[in-house]
């Protein structure tokens, strides 16, 4: 039987019978064979990953471009030719610029309690102020009315300007102090607590002076904007009825 075997097989058989297999050599041989296979597998996997990533990236990019294209007005359709669009854009810019206040305006940052007196992009004066506390007061008895002491946000305009203002204390002042609400208006009036000037921006909200200078820069008011004396005078001199006030 041995003789009938193919010479190559016999040689291989001899190798295993006559030679003691050395594991190091075997491992080395196996490694030599497997390293290229692994490299090929990893290489192919990497190429597949790259192709998939690339395809995915293209799909994402296509979606993005589609979204951006959809947002743009169609060029060349109807009267909106390229030249017309450029002219229209110039006109739009002019229209937007016209809306901006041409004179000085006031910007109040309620987060930082800072008031800016601005003209165009220039800050003419930066002032530390006090703004609304945001607290809520609910009437304990009776009508159970509720007040939130927030400085309103948005776009306003100076509606009235009053020198040497008197303060007519509202109901919440008495409720918060636990005092009975006076029936006579004269009992509500207090002098000298609002400083020398007050600028009304509507809904009983004013930019005014204060006797509580120590609370400047804090959220302590019932919604009004308290300003120091010198700064208030500067505001008084610069503002007029109609001056824009932006509060955020």
């Amino acid at each position: 039987m041995f003789k009938t075997m193919h010479p190559n097989r016999r040689r291989r058989g001899n190798y295993f019978i006559n030679q003691t297999p050395r594991s190091g050599v075997l491992k080395h041989k196996l490694l030599n064979k497997s390293v290229p296979i692994f490299s090929v597998i990893i290489g192919v996997a990497l190429i597949i990953c790259l192709i998939l990533e690339g395809a995915g990236y293209l799909v994402l990019h296509h979606k993005k471009r589609l979204a951006i294209k959809n947002s743009a007005a169609p060029v060349g359709s109807g009267e909106k030719s390229f030249d017309n669009l450029e002219k229209e854009n110039d006109k739009l810019v002019r229209q937007i610029k016209k809306l901006a206040p041409s004179e000085a305006y006031i910007v109040v940052d309620t987060a930082q309690n800072i008031l800016y007196l601005k003209k165009g992009d220039q800050v003419a004066r930066k002032v530390v102020v006090s703004t609304g506390s945001g607290n809520v007061l609910t009437e304990p008895t009776g009508r159970k009315r509720s007040w939130t002491f927030d400085t309103p946000r948005g776009e306003f305009a100076v509606k009235n300007m009053i020198k040497d203002p008197l303060w007519t204390a509202p109901d919440w002042e008495f409720i918060s102090n636990g005092e009975p609400i006076p029936k006579n208006k004269a009992d509500r009036i207090q002098e000298g607590v609002l400083g020398d000037y007050k600028l009304g921006i509507g809904n009983d909200i004013y930019i005014h002076g204060t006797i509580y200078i120590r609370t400047m820069g804090m959220h302590v008011t019932h919604g009004c904007i308290r300003v120091g004396d010198d700064d208030l005078e500067a505001l008084w001199k610069t503002s007029r009825t109609g001056t824009k006030v932006f509060i955020f």
Partner: peptide, 21 residues
């Protein structure tokens, strides 16, 4: 680019015309 700017300015104008922030 011009078409996008047109869209941007149109929307900007519509917001700027409104009262508020």
């Amino acid at each position: 680019g011009v078409a996008e700017r047109n869209n941007f300015l149109t929307q900007m104008l519509s917001l700027a015309e409104k009262s508020g922030l």
